[in-house]
């Protein structure tokens, strides 16, 4: 599976530093953070799909995917916007006739949004290395939340 930017929502504090960083590096932000019910914030950006559906309707092959890497050639782009309609996550945006989506900041070791995240909520990795970790942490947290804090530490005696 290709590498992508993933969010650990238990860590996200909704500060939008990722948006600011992306905006500075790419002129417009390709990641967006929103707060839900005042209780959690969720950043969303291109999922870097293994089979990117956005490439499917592209009439001139401007968007293509080879060996799991999405390529975009602006010269061939007709600006028809069909790709934005084919993305199940709504993360491809057509602005001034150019497709804007996360390209993982080529030329930088870590995408700017990941590097800047104060809470360490954004992770740049393969999805496989991710799932277990977050699930385990979540289970641990749930246990803690449901039980009263156990007496711990020095004064156990």
């Amino acid at each position: 599976m290709p590498e992508a930017v993933y969010a650990d929502l238990s860590r996200c504090i909704g500060c939008r530093a990722c948006e600011l960083a992306c905006e500075r590096e790419n002129k417009s932000s390709r990641i967006s953070v929103k707060v839900l019910s005042g209780l959690a914030a969720a950043p969303v950006s291109c999922r870097q799909c293994e089979i990117p559906l956005c490439t499917a309707p592209c009439p001139k092959g401007a968007l293509s995917c080879e060996n799991g890497k999405l390529e975009y050639e602006a010269e061939n782009c007709t600006g028809c916007g069909l790709c934005t309609l084919a993305c199940p996550f709504g993360t491809a945006v057509l602005r001034a006739g150019i497709i804007e989506r996360c390209n993982l900041c080529p030329g930088m070791e870590t995408p700017a949004c990941v590097a800047t995240c104060p809470a360490g909520a954004l992770i740049y990795t393969e999805p496989g290395s991710l799932g277990e970790n977050i699930r385990q942490r979540r289970a641990k947290r749930m246990n803690r939340a449901l039980e009263p804090p156990a007496p711990a530490g020095r004064r156990a005696e």
């Binding site: 929502l9 019910s37 959690a40 969720a42 979540r138």
Partner: peptide, 16 residues
């Protein structure tokens, strides 16, 4: 689409 994806992603943490 983005919103429903967001809601789905955040479902577990919101419940928690």
């Amino acid at each position: 689409r983005q919103e429903s994806f967001r809601e789905k992603e955040a479902g577990a943490i919101l419940r928690e």
